[in-house]
Design a protein around this nucleic acid. Structure first.
Lengths: 261, 261
DNA sequence: GTGAGATCTG
DNA sequence: CAGATCTCAC
């Protein structure tokens, strides 16, 4: 069994109390972090090591930052899109292979507003990612693409779809772009197991009692190529840590895959 | 018995975890706080009330602030020097009477540097305090003057006297001034019980492992008029809380007085 | 080093 | 609301 989780931690250093407790309780094989918000020299690698996890990571001061943690060796780690285009978002994408499964962890740009150049950059990010899939992987591979995608794919993935039509994480253009790239060869494993409404992974700090009122977004995803998706066993949001002291605004999304047979 | 403590908390709101625990363990009759660093509307009065303590307090945003907490009624509370001189440091001195004992709690200005005007203000603070003693009290009163005095009176009250001759808390001028005002009628109760070296109440955060290495200053004091000093039973620094999680840089100083006979 | 403040960001 | 940064104070 390969248990993998994706978790936007909103500062890895401010979230060690959550991460220690959660990894102690869950022992996922792989944990993909986004928004670590710290330069590599300050990344708490030894704390993860003490928990049994090796880590590859790249971050910057205050913004972005991704990490790939694993109980098993991480083979062939890479950062960024490596397509020769500038800028290469090296602190938004980390890849590696664990137990023969290729893993891509992305922190997709949020986009600010639909008339902002960052939104075009976000669209372009997905295009470039598709190029990377074409270049580096095959649709027949055991491939997992996980992370904070900053896209809620359908109406049931947000609390109030009506007032979010112009939102950078819910606009028709970005949803279409996301569907296109998923069509490369990915299955939304979460929806295999939780097809209903009210399933969210992000609860804005600014919304009062968002967790209790279940006002959120499903923008953190675990996507798998069909070979792997067919061997999936479960996928769920663990809302627990969102309710702990000093939480991230995101909750971990966990997936389980039977890779042993 | 009257147990009294003085404790520079370096933000009362950031120190509630320490204060709750410590008051639960110690149940002093009176606790004098300095550097509460909060406006009165945000002072955690109800939390102290829940612990059985009534409080009089005056603070300001980010700086200064004093509080007088007591298990017994606080009679005739006053703030500031009330001498008509401006400015009146109302958030640096609180007075009141508990079980017939007059208590003065001061947070004496630090002074910044010996060539800074704040240092002159510090000297003047002691002069004005002496005027207050003359005006409001008699040397025959049961009177306690406690607080963060920002003066280490003698060579054994600091770790390295040699390199502190020009320090605002150790310069000859301020030590002389402090001795003069003590001469109004106060006895340093702490030294009755702990005459030796290496007794400190303040351990700078910036000195690595200051507590374990015992590198500090004795600048928090419990002074009593002779009638009361003769009935004192003990006086000590409780270094415990300085070693707890998220501590103040000061430790409480505790004194016990047999006022029942 | 650890409080506080203000300002910016999502 | 809660990260980040910076400045200030002790």
């Amino acid at each position: 069994m390969l248990k993998i989780a994706t978790f936007n931690v909103n500062s890895v250093r401010s979230r060690m109390h959550i991460l220690s407790q959660w990894l102690h309780d869950n022992r996922v094989d792989v944990l993909c972090l986004q928004e670590t918000k710290t330069e590599d020299q300050f990344f708490p690698a030894s704390e993860f090591e003490a928990l049994g996890y090796e880590a590859v990571f790249k971050g910057e001061k205050a913004y972005n930052g991704v990490a790939l943690l694993s109980l098993h060796p991480i083979m062939n780690p890479h950062f960024g899109l490596e397509d020769g285009e500038e800028p290469d978002p090296a602190t938004r994408i980390v890849r590696g292979t664990v137990l023969g499964v290729h893993i891509i962890n992305t922190y997709v740009p949020q986009g600010k507003s639909i008339d902002h150049s960052d939104y075009q950059y976000k669209m372009r990010f997905f295009d470039r990612l598709k190029t990377l899939f074409d270049r580096e992987y095959s649709k027949a591979d055991d491939l997992l693409w996980v992370g904070d995608m900053n896209v809620a794919p359908t109406d049931i993935d947000v609390t109030n779809p009506g007032n979010k039509r112009d939102h950078v994480c819910f606009h028709e253009d970005i949803k279409k772009k996301f569907e296109e790239i998923k069509a490369w060869g990915f299955i939304d494993v979460f929806r295999k197991y939780r097809p209903g409404e009210g399933e969210f992974s992000f609860f804005d700090y600014r919304v009062k009692n968002a967790l209790e009122r279940n006002i959120g977004w499903r923008i953190d995803h675990i996507l798998a190529t069909s070979s792997l998706a067919h061997r999936s066993e479960d996928c769920y949001v663990d809302r627990g840590p969102r309710g702990w002291e000093k939480p991230s605004d995101h909750a971990p999304v966990v997936g389980a895959f039977n890779i042993d047979e």
